[in-house]
Write a protein that binds this DNA or RNA. Structure first.
Lengths: 155, 155
DNA sequence: CCGATTGGTTTTATAATGCAACCACAAAAG
DNA sequence: CTTTTGTGGTTGCATTATAAAACCAATCGG
């Protein structure tokens, strides 16, 4: 096999995510969907991508349950692509990508938008990872452990 | 041009991140680096990827300042790849990817590891996005705004 | 009903990926 | 110090993905 290796069977949850959203365009489509775009043509003109690629990505996201097709919105007979809860669940990933650029990009002056708290109009804070007891955690504070065996009925 | 479209000039910080880490293998290499791998052969055998691809990805990450080469560690004359602060800054992205799988994967029983707080041995909480005043924010609570013009000396 | 727009599919060309073979140099063995 | 092994790659070729453009059917606006 020379096809692009699939991570489907992999037990690593990072690999499993990448299997669904790890290609070039998917996250950008999702970003636009989160900003309110819904129609094929909107995505295509906003992102400037080839229509066949967009078509393939949309279908893949439908298959993965990230997007769903809904009948209308205006009165037309066309369909629209909307995020499912699973799709909206990608929000922290986009925030993490954005904040990494904001913090480490070599030419941050080229970044043209900032994410603000709609209620107050103020920039948001950085994503935080906490322990159960509330302590703020960083890379050095965590480790991986095998998943506990699933509960059997008579174990 | 038919080459894979580059997001280099794009002002969107998500696109800019993807330019650096948006390909198939990069984040998996970084995951392994965060778990302690440092040598070419370690990455190659652990990930099972082609050596030329690994070579290209490592070079790209060096160029992007995500990895650095350091001379030794054991006494040998070989070199090792270690994460820079910019590379360690990718940690929230990996956490976000992991947690998305944990929450939305169709077959979560196939996920083989969980992330735990090293100090307490307990699972970590979900990533949280807060406003400056501490309110927990979700997708519906945020919006984007053009980046404020950079301060000029005599403005 | 006629033309334009929307939402794609098909075709064809190029770039990226995967695998295997090869190679230089360091390290270890004799 | 000579041979052998292991590390860290590069090179060549087959396959796959991506891109751009042409094409096409259904829908909508008048």
């Amino acid at each position: 096999m020379v096809k692009r290796t699939s991570f489907e069977g992999d037990g690593c949850p990072v690999a499993r995510s990448l299997e669904a959203i790890g290609d070039w365009w998917t996250l950008l489509i999702i970003r636009e969907a989160m900003l309110g775009l819904r129609r094929f043509g909107e995505f295509q003109s906003k992102l400037g991508m080839a229509k066949n690629i967009l078509s393939a990505r949309l279908r893949s996201m439908l298959d993965h349950g990230i997007l769903a097709m809904v009948p209308a919105s205006d009165g037309s007979a066309y369909q629209e692509y909307v995020l499912t809860p699973k799709g909206r669940g990608l929000f922290p990933i986009l925030v993490a990508l954005r904040q990494w650029s904001e913090e480490f990009d070599d030419t941050p002056e080229e970044i043209d938008t900032i994410m603000i708290d709609r209620a107050k109009g103020r920039p948001v804070k950085k994503l935080e990872l906490h322990a159960e007891d509330g302590r703020l955690l960083s890379l050095a504070d965590i480790t991986l452990k095998p998943r506990p065996a699933p509960r059997r009925r008579s174990a």
